[in-house]
Simulated assay, not measured.
Amino acid sequence: MSTTSGKLVVITGPSGVGKGTLLRKFLAKYPDTYFSVSATTRAPRPGEIDGQDYYFVSTEKFQAMIQANELLEWAEFAGNFYGTPRDPVVTQVAASRLVILEIELAGARQVRTTYPQACQIFIAPPSLAELERRIRLRGQDSEPAISRRLERAKIELEAAHEFDYQIINEDLDVALRGLEGIVC
């Protein structure tokens, strides 16, 4: 990676677009990248590890983090709070590392205000029909949940133009090369 100074990269896009898969491939290829761990008030899912997948905190602790300005961004989603602890991000960027945040649209908009020098990338599906197919293939959601995700995706897709770059995740290897071309 040719980065000599730190850089903050914000990645967002609709649920099911393949952000996690794309980032896992990127991080495997560039292990020196710092992937920011978010804090959340939701309960851990089976197999999730505190401090690795998320920082699992109480609602009271999360509210205290908001009040103390310890979060770079935060949002409420599906009845739980999610946010990015500020200090680890700032510390890693200052240490000349590439830092990646994978966050929701609302959080990306907040980062645009609180850290305007961040590079913002929107990951889009090739089509809404393909996004629906991917969500259904995961087999994790009920019909009402799928409908909610698709309605939310339409809103998120309308905001894609707000981002510095857009990557259409039709072919994972092509999307990975696109991400590399932007951040490396």
Rank of each mutant, 00 (worst) to 15 (best):
I135P: 03
I182D: 10
P126Y: 15
Q120M: 04
G16Y: 06
Q92R: 09
I155C: 08
E73Q: 05
R149C: 01
Y82C: 00
A106P: 12
Y54K: 00
V174M: 13
Q67K: 11
I103S: 00
P85S: 07
Q110D: 04
A43N: 04
P44A: 13
G18V: 04
P46L: 07
P14T: 01
I155A: 13
W74Y: 13
I100V: 14
E156K: 04
M65R: 10
L172N: 05
A94T: 14
R45H: 13
S96Y: 13
I66K: 03
D173P: 08
K19N: 03
R45Q: 14
D171L: 02
L128N: 09
G107M: 04
A124C: 00
R45V: 04
F77G: 05
M65V: 08
E151V: 07
G79A: 00
E102D: 15
H161P: 06
G181K: 13
E73R: 04
D53T: 00
L71T: 02
R138M: 04
V9D: 02
T3D: 15
R136M: 10
E73T: 03
L150P: 00
G20M: 05
S147G: 14
A106Y: 12
G83I: 01
D87R: 07
D32S: 09
S58I: 08
G20N: 07
Y82T: 01
R24Q: 06
F26M: 14
G16T: 03
L8R: 01
N169T: 12
A94R: 15
N80T: 01
Y82V: 04
R45C: 06
R152L: 01
T33P: 05
R152W: 03
Q63M: 14
I135M: 00
P126L: 06
I146D: 04
R149L: 05
